[in-house]
């Protein structure tokens, strides 16, 4: 097993290398002089020259790529043009809010999405199934920030149950931390929940027609036990896969959600960096997020072997 994990990690390295080169190359493949773009419309030629030399943009492209990759390997993502702080420091400061938000959203979506899908498949073509499917399609079509505003308007502004926006770090108490994350996490979870419910239903439908399920029901086992232990376990591979792939959706939604709820997370950091054309920060966030995505899908790949003993690496 350890050897497998190691081999998988090795396979992830070229992908991360591609990501590192791609985020760096973006700056050069887009039309125009990168230094001028970063300096903005009102910069003097002097400022442009300063940025050019600071980012090393005056060197040959391949040399720049080499220097960048060397930095990345050593865990150095460069320095923010705007604040002068190392990008890794900025990302470290903002990681807590985003982690809290995405983990909570993930928990909510799995805790609700999977049972919804199971019930919909079990009661196929019933009204429950229809409701779940309507929810799944419309949840997938909902603009995340719009849903956030509606929830804020109802639960924060009108009912006053939860804070409108803002963030309290975990060290200042669990409830204040959680109460500020509930609305954002619910907002963010809807799309993901819809995706998970849909995939669970489709996968369960495939399994429920199997003979062994009919046998299990025939022996008089409780439906709950049959569904959860016999059916869901065998239907779980595609569901776990979609949880991993959908993680990109979750991060993308987090960028928008953090803006709606004024959460000081990575998404906010990126959006601010874009307004200020602080490219080193954008580059760093992209790389870190992609790394997390690759890592999560790696863990899921390894989970397959736990869920389905027939799969061996």
């Amino acid at each position: 097993m350890l050897q497998q994990i190691f081999r998988r990690l090795m396979a992830a390295i070229p992908v991360m290398g591609v990501v590192a080169i791609a985020v760096f190359a973006l700056l050069h493949v887009t039309p125009g002089d990168p230094a001028v773009i970063i300096a903005g419309d009102y910069a003097t030629p002097d400022e442009v020259a300063k940025i050019r030399s600071k980012l090393g943009l005056d060197r040959p492209f391949l040399v720049q790529v080499g220097i960048w990759l060397g930095q990345v390997v050593r865990g150095d993502l460069g320095t923010s043009i705007f604040s002068g702080l190392p990008v890794t420091t900025l990302i470290g400061q903002r990681a807590e809010a985003t982690t809290g938000l995405t983990v909570l959203a993930l928990l909510i979506s799995v805790a609700i999405g999977v049972p919804l899908g199971v019930v919909a498949a079990w009661k196929q073509r019933s009204w429950i199934d229809r409701v779940v499917m309507v929810f799944a399609v419309s949840g997938f079509s909902m603009p995340v920030f719009w849903l956030g505003f509606i929830l804020v308007y109802v639960f924060a502004l009108s009912l006053g149950w939860l804070p409108v926006q803002g963030y309290v770090p975990l060290r200042e108490g669990f409830w204040p931390f959680l109460s500020h994350l509930i609305l954002p996490a619910v907002t963010l979870s809807v799309v993901y929940m819809a995706l998970i419910a849909r995939m669970t239903r489709a996968s369960m439908l495939g399994v429920l027609h199997e003979d062994y399920i009919r046998t299990a029901f025939a022996t008089g086992l409780e439906p709950r036990g049959v569904l959860m232990r016999h059916a869901l376990k065998n239907a779980s591979l595609p569901v776990v896969t979609i949880i991993g792939i959908g993680f990109a959706l979750l991060i993308g939604g987090a960028v928008v959600t953090e803006t709606v709820f004024a959460l000081p997370g990575l998404g906010r950091l990126t959006v601010d960096a874009i307004v200020r054309r602080d490219y080193p920060v954008i580059q760093g966030v992209l790389l870190v997020v992609a790394g997390v995505y690759v890592l999560i899908n790696l863990v899921i790949d390894l989970l397959y072997a736990v869920l389905d003993p027939r799969i061996r690496y």
Binding site: V15, M16, V19, L27, G252, G253, V255, V271, I274, Y279
Partner: peptide
Amino acid sequence: DGLMAIPAILLALALMALM
């Protein structure tokens, strides 16, 4: 694979920052 590891919104945002 590398391009797909970057969430679509973030990639689009980064591109828009440069255009």
